[in-house]
Design a protein around this nucleic acid. Sequence first.
DNA 1: CGTACTATACCGGCTGGACGGTATAGTGGA
DNA 2: TCCACTATACCGTCCAGCCGGTATAGTACG
Lengths: 175, 175
Amino acid sequence: MAATERSTRDRLLDAFETLLVSAGSRSATLDAVASAAQVSKGGLLYHFHSKDELVDGMLARLREQGRADVEKMRTATKGPVDFYLTTSINTGSDFDRALIAASRIAQDNDSRASDALGDLREWWFAVLLEHLEDESLARTIQLIGDGLYFDDTTGLNEKNALKHVRDVLTRLGAL
Amino acid sequence: MAATERSTRDRLLDAFETLLVSAGSRSATLDAVASAAQVSKGGLLYHFHSKDELVDGMLARLREQGRADVEKMRTATKGPVDFYLTTSINTGSDFDRALIAASRIAQDNDSRASDALGDLREWWFAVLLEHLEDESLARTIQLIGDGLYFDDTTGLNEKNALKHVRDVLTRLGAL
DNA sequence: CGTACTATACCGGCTGGACGGTATAGTGGA
DNA sequence: TCCACTATACCGTCCAGCCGGTATAGTACG
């Protein structure tokens, strides 16, 4: 049945992402993914014929989530800048998990992953630029978002980082 | 002889870092490191009894390089902020390579690596804060540096990023 | 209605290769 | 003679991918 198929497929992708985020790409083995999703290895390979296909499936889902996120950013009540910065900090959402998982894959010099991340960055930047009409400011804010994101994924999380950023951006009239 | 020992040791660490940077941690195997450094596997294990020791050796060297970098930052002619931002972009220096290599290791959830990176961040922040006397600004600039650095390591390099950042920081009177 | 066949969704054992690490015998220079 | 290696063989484990098999639901035909 189609419904059952999608559910198992998504559970496998969820498990793959979770393993990537919590333990790195070395630990995200097919066996580990399968057992985390409570599926046999054969079951995993039924849905994804290889590890590469698992990565492709994950990145395809990431792009979908990204498109939805950009739409939310565009129409956010507090404005796109605030939305962008707030969501640059890992809240544990599905999208955050997918994003971090993709960057783990990108670290293994997988161009598919860096291409996907690059696309997302372009989409976000387009919204920032459209809103601010100031390329330097838009680029700088995007870098701050990248920094917040990087710190989170590297375990360098600074508690009040967002507060300081808001302070500075207020001085610039960007918030 | 001590001189010969250090040279081979450093060549092994260089090879390890290069492999980490150019192909990710999965590819940085003991065999690959040894052959890249033109040393036999036995030779590698003579200097580093395990892969863990190889990582420790790399991180120890990184800290040394970091201390030297902070000193240069403190006394830079154009000021620490400019120095920090300029060197946040990968120039291919030994220190850049060591930093990226460490972040690859950190992605595998190795706390030794994230601890080392966290220490470096603290050192840089102390200099920024001392110079700017403005915590929000210092934190924000550090995030921008993190962003520049992250983009470089993820293959998302934006050509004129630094120009835009300088523009914005000039408006803030930080440059 | 029942038999034959097909498609979908999965199970789990197996293999071959890679990898970390051990061990050991040997070599060239100071 | 010791140090700093080289060279090579080997071990146990892990892992990607393969494959034969199972269960179930649906379909076509007589």
